[in-house]
Amino acid sequence: MNETYGLRINGRDEQVREAWLGESLLYVLRERLGLPGSKNACEQGECGSCSVFCDGVLVNACCLLAADAVDAEVTTVEGLGAGSTPVQRAFLDEGAVQCGFCTPGLVMAVTDLLQRTSDPSETELREAISGNLCRCTGYGRIFAAVRAAQQGDAQ
């Protein structure tokens, strides 16, 4: 049976109309709400490409039933700001972007990390993004981007 329900995404109320209730938040964001920034690379919580904030907590949108997110504040990569954030700029400047498929999820994970910890150690950083697979960069430029974003924040 299909159902219509409301979601709150990036500070806006959205209506999901006549949707199959088995749809993940990731599917609804991408295919019903025109927010394809969260990527679908595995649909099983093993890649982090669909990372979003749900009530401020970093989760995989593929593992969240959209119809169970009805009273949550969801923030996607599209909701981080009108321009580029320091984290996003650092990804650009430091060469952390190649194909870019993992990038939105990594931007979310790094944003989460730097919100929680202003000065993460090397291993804290690695662990914090260990749920975000990148196949292009070998992570080296991503580490550099996080350092640059940190320094940018500190200034």
Binding site: E43, Q44, C63, D68
Partner: peptide
Amino acid sequence: LLAGGTDLMVEINFGRRSPDDIVALRR
């Protein structure tokens, strides 16, 4: 029953399970 979704949603995403009804415990 649905809590964190990290098991059940994978099953649903892959079409391995299609429950008729869900009781979501998140709240």
